[in-house]
Design a protein around this nucleic acid. Structure first.
Length: 563
DNA sequence: AGTTTCGGCGCC
DNA sequence: AAAGGGCGCCGAAACT
């Protein structure tokens, strides 16, 4: 009995399975069995399943109560490998990989399914080319060879394993859902927006604010129409180029205050109001569809319900089941800690080697104790700030933490020049297509006055174009945000393993924050499990490092009470 | 009439 | 004074 098996769904709910040897090659004949779930359930000794797509297979297993320990997701690995090989534009599906292997015509990727409000989580992927197990195994063997050919095969293996684990976690979260009290949600909406009038129309509070706005302008103005608002201000002798809040805040006019309040509440209504409740909450659970690896940086995305943007006030409705708790865990200053780990800047590593407030420590060293300024400088360095106070702060940061700033600077330069940029574990940033802007620059044509007017930096020969600099900022951010995503995947994988034997379930994940739903008696164990998982993830991802990855954890009944 | 883009803002 | 990364969501506006 080997501990690694491959499977491929077959017709009529059946499945083909095959044992694999330590080398990843078949160690026995392919067997056809009538029931997918039973084939997995009857092999509890399997430590890792190799399959084409977790999204395709795992929901069907979860629906019958079957969980697996580990997987190798061939589609995910193919995406990562193609990226690493600088072949971003090519079709990523396993079927395409097989076709390339055999030198035949390469089929395009299957189209992405669109989110539909209220739709059941998809049990099956959209039309994709079914792949017989023998073909799948050929692709798998070739992927292992390609993994061995990368710059850091050990890291790439870790990355594919972590991405696969992330897909398991995402499927399990989709299965579980986030505990959600519709009655509490309705109470919050009523509290904020007032009662709704019969026959549609706006709720009372919104209608009142709209009236206040109109009264301030002396005519009927629709506050939800930016064009109408801009026109109304113009008629009042005030020139605004948009109705963004930061712009309105500097305007002195009686309409501003009710307008800003209106926009705030309007947003709650359209994005998380009564129809949201109707669409995304069923049986006491909010059910978005988490999708691991949905962005090029490795961050997750969700499909439906804006699950990664739940406004703070609405979190009041995320409430644990009776007798259960939500363990809400938030990584402290994750991005600068990751920057310390990947850049190996001695000063920043020393600062990140403590569990105390990192921004305070940075400010003590480089900003005479001004924490807010230190935080802006660090985030500016990570986000590619190019103007204002940011530049001055960046200079201070560079003096004290030169290797850290040099690391992101180098990433930005590589991005500008169209070179490949990778996260710590090897996820690769797609080089953007060349633009006409680039071509113009390379042809040595100086920019027009208009170009320069829209630019923040003076033009000099050899300077990158506006587009190239945008790519530079993207690449600068990519190495930090992406390496952070590497780490969080390992964290999730480690945490998932620890929770394996418990009633606790992972129910939410958002970039640097996880929520575990568990019986009250398990909460303390879960808190400790998160701490240990963070430590293990740090070691696995970055090797031996001084950098610590502390979490702020809260054991609460309601998500809104966590901060 | 149906589809795509835009504006504004929520989260990290 | 007001700019710099990643996403998703909705209604309105702008298209085909």
């Amino acid at each position: 009995m080997t501990d690694r098996w491959a499977l491929a769904p077959a017709e009529e709910g059946g499945v083909d399975v095959a044992p694999l040897g330590p080398d990843g090659l078949p160690a026995g004949p392919v067997r056809r069995e009538p029931d997918l779930a039973e084939a997995v359930r009857s092999r509890p000794g399997v430590r890792r399943w190799v399959w084409r797509s977790t999204t395709e297979v795992y929901p069907r297993l979860l629906a019958t109560g079957v969980r697996v320990e580990r997987v190798y997701d061939i589609e995910a690995a193919e995406t990562l490998l193609l990226g690493h090989e600088g072949r971003y534009g090519e079709p990523r599906a396993a079927a395409a990989a097989l076709a390339r292997l055999r030198g035949g015509p390469v089929p395009p990727d299957p189209p992405q399914r669109q989110a539909e409000p209220g739709a059941q989580p998809s049990l099956f992927e959209p039309q994709s080319v079914p792949l017989p197990l023998a073909d799948l195994l050929a692709v798998y063997a070739e992927q292992q060879r390609r993994t061995g050919a990368t710059a850091h095969p050990d890291r790439m293996r870790l990355l594919t394993a972590a991405e696969s684990a992330g897909m398991l976690v995402a499927a399990e979260m989709n299965h579980a859902g986030l505990p959600w009290r519709a009655d509490v949600h309705r109470a919050v909406l009523h509290d904020l927006l007032g009662e709704r009038y019969a026959g549609g129309g706006e709720p009372r509070r919104l209608a009142e604010l709209a009236d206040e706005v109109s009264a301030a302008f002396g005519r009927r103005v629709r506050p939800d129409l930016p064009a109408d608002v801009v026109k109304a201000f113009a008629q009042a002798g005030i020139k605004v180029s948009s109705t963004r809040r930061w712009e309105l805040e500097s305007v002195d006019h009686p309409a501003v205050e009710p307008l800003i309040e209106y926009k705030k509440l309007y947003r709650i209504r359209v994005a998380h109001g009564w129809s949201w409740l109707q669409d995304w909450v069923r049986d006491g659970r909010f059910r978005p569809e988490f999708h691991a690896g949905g962005t090029v940086t490795g961050r997750w995305v969700t499909n439906g319900g804006g699950a990664l943007q739940i406004p703070k006030v609405i979190r009041r409705a995320a409430v644990a089941d009776p007798g259960w708790r939500l363990v809400v865990a938030d990584a402290d200053q994750m991005e600068p800690r990751v920057l310390a780990a990947i850049s190996r800047d001695p000063g920043l590593m020393e600062v990140a080697g403590r569990e105390t407030d990192l921004y305070q420590a940075v400010s003590d060293r480089a900003f005479s104790g001004d924490r807010a300024q230190a935080k802006l400088a660090v985030l500016g360095a990570v986000y590619g700030q190019t103007s204002g106070d940011g530049l001055k702060n960046l200079a201070a940061l560079r003096r004290r933490f030169p290797k850290a700033v040099a690391y992101v600077d180098e990433a930005a330069r590589a991005g500008e020049e169209g070179r490949l940029v990778r996260t710590w574990l090897g996820r690769t940033c797609p080089p953007a297509a060349r633009t006409t802007d680039d071509a113009v620059e390379e042809a040595g044509i100086p920019p027009t006055e208009e170009d320069r007017a829209s630019d923040t930096r003076p033009w000099t020969p050899g300077y990158a174009s506006t587009d190239a600099r945008a790519r530079g900022r993207f690449a600068r951010n990519f190495v930090v945000q992406g390496s952070a995503a590497d780490w969080t995947l390992l964290l999730l994988a480690a945490l998932r393993r620890t929770l394996g034997g418990m009633a606790a379930e992972l129910v939410f994940f958002q970039h640097d924050e996880v929520i575990v739903h568990c019986p009250e008696a398990e909460a303390a164990t879960v808190v400790e499990a998160i701490r240990q998982a963070a430590e293990l993830a740090g070691r696995l991802t970055f090797g031996r490092t001084l950098v610590r990855f502390p979490f702020t954890t809260a054991v609460v009944e309601c998500y809104a009470d966590a901060k």
